[in-house]
Design a binder for these strands. Structure first.
Lengths: 246, 246
DNA sequence: CGAGCGGTTGAGGCATGTCAAGAGTTGTGG
DNA sequence: CCACAACTCTTGACATGCCTCAACCGCTCG
């Protein structure tokens, strides 16, 4: 592991409050690994042997069933994923693959589980992290159940603009095909939907989003802190596809 | 609070491992309340002042957006709900209403938060509970994204049969209209889908489910432990609509 | 340059929602 | 005890959302 990576990890909410000695112990048994683009480094169903921390690149979490698959989240530096599976010592519910070349820290989940029995501050941090992840997935389920695809696209586009500070124009952080999968629709349907959204205050230019009438877009998306997140502005990732603890 | 209720609560995973003194302290500041049928006792967006424990009756967790609403879960005795909101000291993401006359224990969330800083065993229990709830919602999101409504109905019916011990016939634990909402479809669509499922090995007689060809139903539902849950057989609720910690 | 890939567009079809009506059931009040 | 209201469930007709298949464009990269 590189020396400059440790402070970054230490800085995560999850590890911020534990004692230095415990942090070092945890890191001592961990190691870093580089993955090429497009590599599936976690397969759903595998035992959760390691907590993963992305320090470089980006990772897609996705799920498969039968022949179909769907994107559940995109994880960007610096954040962890599949925490819940590690804690439960249970199989991963999602698969993970690199979207680009990525560098990942692997923390043995047995050490992790031992640690929150030893460091009370750490267990409080884990509690907060998990509660936060839980709420994030609930929001996700809400948007899937309560909004149709057009509304999901509109609120996604609006949210991204707000995350960037309310800018009228920005570039999509992910490919459209991935975005479609994340929003639970086909690439074709997303493409068409984006076209028709020109009447509703937002226009595309390639991967560039241009909000032409925020009021109209707002009226369609009906943003709601109980779905789109109040911590919208606190999201460090910038992918717009929330990180997840699994 | 009734004397016979305390052991039931104490028996929950969440409270099982804490010290007796701490448990008593927590219960001392809590109180029980009876609600009539159909009462909305939690509105999404309200501050999460109390962890709720259902000791009698049943409670529907649902979400609203715009004019629409959807059932997220049904909670049955004895289990808790909206744990995550209490921990984060954040607004409820879901509303709750009684499906029938219910008795609920209310535990002040500030006491709860103070407690897991004082009782390490309790914080480990909270961690496990949250991780478990998280995985349950992820499974839910997976089924929504990866299966169509017909497949969701089929796997629900099959899962219920397995929960009841693999019986060929059982009664639906909830009204069809509620089930439809939980499965993310309209009541009309569920009704029609149930009709067409007769070709696929399951038949309805009112609220009674009769599995006529388990192999056929299996082929359609393609049950998967990473969606339908490995702890299927450990679920104490029996509603089939998983309890949730929010 | 040609293959591969992401993105777009069109045509067509199936899945699902909407609206409306009616049967059966339950609960309530006269 | 009956009559009525309210509700669930079902069914039909219809509209539409969304997917599938196929073709094509433009870009990137070997």
């Amino acid at each position: 592991m590189r020396p400059e990576e440790l402070p970054e990890i230490r800085h995560l909410h999850l590890f911020r409050d534990m004692t230095q000695a415990n942090f070092e112990a945890l890191m001592a048994s961990s190691y870093a690994q580089n993955f090429p683009q497009g590599l599936e480094m976690i397969r759903q169903g595998d035992p959760a042997d390691f907590l993963h921390v992305v320090v470089e690149g980006s990772v897609e979490l996705f799920a498969r069933w039968g022949g179909r698959e769907g994107t559940m989240a995109v994880v960007r530096p610096v954040s962890t994923f599949i925490l819940a599976a590690c804690i439960r010592d249970a199989p991963y519910l999602m698969s993970a693959r690199t979207l680009e070349r990525a560098r990942i820290i692997l923390i043995p989940s047995s050490d992790l589980r031992a640690m929150f029995r030893r460091d009370p501050e750490f267990s409080v941090a884990v509690i907060n992290e998990l509660a936060s992840c839980y709420r994030s997935v609930v929001r996700n389920a809400k948007t899937l159940k309560l909004r149709n695809s057009r509304e999901r696209v509109a609120s996604y586009l609006l949210r991204q603009s707000l995350l960037a500070g309310g800018v009228p124009s920005y570039a999509l952080p992910v490919e459209k095909r991935l975005l479609a999968s994340y929003l639970g629709m086909t690439a074709e349907n997303l493409s068409r939907t984006l076209r028709t959204l020109e009447e509703s205050g937002v226009k595309m230019d390639g991967a560039r989003v241009i909000i032409t009438d925020r009021a109209k877009l707002n009226a369609l998306a009906q943003p709601d802190t109980l779905i789109d997140g109040p911590d919208m502005f606190a999201n460090e990732s910038g992918s717009g596809l929330p990180a997840a603890g699994q």
